[in-house]
Design a protein around this nucleic acid. Sequence first.
DNA 1: GCAATTGATGTAATAACATTACGTCAATTT
DNA 2: AAATTGACGTAATGTTATTACATCAATTGC
Lengths: 134, 134
Amino acid sequence: MAIQKLTKNQSLVLDALEHAEGPLSAYTILDKLRDHGFRAPLQVYRALDKLLEFGLIHRLESMNSFVACAHPDHHHHHDHGVTAFAICEDCGQVTEMHDAGMEERLSVLAGNQHFKTEKTTIEIRGHCQNCTAE
Amino acid sequence: MAIQKLTKNQSLVLDALEHAEGPLSAYTILDKLRDHGFRAPLQVYRALDKLLEFGLIHRLESMNSFVACAHPDHHHHHDHGVTAFAICEDCGQVTEMHDAGMEERLSVLAGNQHFKTEKTTIEIRGHCQNCTAE
DNA sequence: GCAATTGATGTAATAACATTACGTCAATTT
DNA sequence: AAATTGACGTAATGTTATTACATCAATTGC
Ligand SMILES: [Zn+2]
Ligand SMILES: [Zn+2]
Ligand SMILES: [Zn+2]
Ligand SMILES: [Zn+2]
């Protein structure tokens, strides 16, 4: 699919996420965008919903927050397949990972249960290389 | 480790989860236990924290709720390894799955990033066999 | 036995996260 | 031009989780 034209609010929210060091909660985004006219949570949540739909951002379920997609051809629609995230509990850094072998195992697991997968969440909490070094 | 003696509140919460059809939110548990003297969220959250620690229940991050562990030797401490959940969005049924191949892939993924894993969340949202049949 | 510590509990208040409801407006379609 | 659609603004409310403080019971050390 072609480039997605974003509305002003959507662009502001995406921008906030892309320039952030790590994942942001919806309310943190709201605070960052008050100077740009944001006043209510719904302005953020509506933009987030669309950006999720476009595949430009991801939601981290285990921490109720959001990150910009690390995929290089951002600002385009594309299929992610299954995405796994490594989340450092010390510094907050998030690494987005894709792995065909992982997808295959999950596909088999779901198939065993005759389960029709719509969306898969994989989040690894722990400590990144930097924060592990003594 | 041996059998864990549970406090009254912990037993009540575990019981509520074991007798539930599907996952329950903390506040739903609170409502179910009002007749047993529960008055405040903290009574539930404290019990949930301990039950999670003992490995007797699981938290489903993608729906902010909790399920009793499906592992047969429940009421004992045991290591789960990595657990994946298939969550039906139609009927709410949750299936707990374990798979060595999946653990291996996750281990490799984390290893590639020199990431030290503490806890892994895998949740598959979709439709179970019953809810898929026409 | 008794003081000190530890762990569980009760209660209230507050914080953090998310949605519903309602009205307006601009662009697109018919 | 009317109808439809999609984005937006605002207020109110609903849901999930934590902080703070006081009390009580069981255990530990002397
Ligand atoms: Zn991505
Ligand atoms: Zn780190
Ligand atoms: Zn289990
Ligand atoms: Zn189902």
